[in-house]
Structures are given as C-alpha cells and as structure tokens.
Amino acid sequence: MPEMFWSVNQSLLVALVDTFKIFACTLIFAIPLGLVLSFGSMSKIRPLKYTIDLIVWVFRGTPLMLQLFVVFYIPGILLHNNIWGSGTDGRMLATIVAFSLNYACYFSVIFRGGIEGVPAGQREAGEVLGMTKSQIFFKITLLQMVKRVVPPMSNEIITLVKDTSLARVIGVVELTHAGYAYIKAAGIIWPLFYTAVFYLLFVGILTLLFNYIERRLSYFR
C-alpha cells in the first residue's frame, strides 16, 4: 500500500507540472493581452471599442470548456489540417491559447476598472507639473492601479488554478486527468479525491503571495 501511495504521488506530481504550465503560460500571455484589451475598450475610436466589447462578451459569455473544444477542433475542421501539431504538445498549445484569450478578457475588465478608478485629479496634477503622458502612466497611475487590481486579480488567478482541470476535455494530462485515470487503470478512486491536496497547496502558496503583495502596497492609500 505505501508503494501505491508513492507511485500515485509521483504521477500526480508529473501531472502537476502540466497544470503549472497551463497556469503560468496563461498568466504570461493573458496579463499583457488583457492590458492591451483594456486600453482598447477605453479607446475613443468607436469601431475598436465595439470590436473589443464584442470579443469580451463572447469569451465571458460562453463556457471555457466550450472554448477549449472550439479552439482545438475548429481549425482542423475548417483547414483540414491540425494546426496545433500532433500529440501532447499540440493539445497543450491549444489549451494555452484558449485559456489566454479567455483570461485576457476577464483581466481587461479588471484593468479597466483599476485605471478608471484612479481619480482624474491624479492625471491632471501630473499634467500641470509638465509631465509627459507616459511619465504620468508609469510614475503616477500604474502603481495606484496595481494596488486596486490586486484583490480582484487574486480571485481570478485562484480560479485559474482550478480551471486548468478543464484541459482534460481535450486530452491534456493535467492533475485532475491523472487522478481520474486511476479509476479505470487501477480501480481506485481515492487518487482523484487526493488531487484536492495539490490544488489546496497551490492556492495556499498563491494566497500567501497575494497577502505579501497587498502588505507591500499598504504603505499608501
């Protein structure tokens, strides 16, 4: 029995690497993309704003699981060619693309709230002191925006950890997939339930990290 326990741990840890890959890559792509989308959604150019509003509506308005299916299968159906490449790497790539687009849309709304939440007087104070637009953004607005978006972003990022489990619908062997596989392969169900420990540890570490960031930014109001 102890050998079984260790072999389950081992295979779940391997799967956790893929879970982490989805998580980390999604953040790396979705944060900058979300910032770009948020600027677009505040643009005075109407067609641009409406296009971005439409994209955000579609990605927030349909299930992420459905988006995974669409991103993974539609290119093959339309182009008669699997653009994602064969095997696990292709599935992982499609997952990261779908997750990044989906999360960028959620992030863009949070970022917009963060930017618009900085009082206009801050920008005006910078302007009358002769600062350039980029100086105003980087020296004045940005940190105040970061402080505002940390609590809602921590919510989204914690949700992302658990959403990675959806990737199994297109065959990515992430944590939940690996736990589930033991039902068929070995006739045991406890590894599936045991995956909760890994998620909890992952989220626990993130929570500590967010608390630290909030503390670091608490020196101003």
Binding site: P119, G121, Q122, E124, A125, V128, L143, Q144, F220
Partner: peptide, 14 residues
C-alpha cells in the same frame, strides 16, 4: 502656471 487643487491631488504613493 502652477496649480493648487481643491482636493490637493497629492500622489499617494510618494
């Protein structure tokens, strides 16, 4: 011109 605002508008992080 210099400007002093009604609501101060100091930069809170500095």
């Amino acid at each position: 011109f210099g400007m002093v605002f009604q609501s101060f508008n100091l930069f809170p992080q500095y």
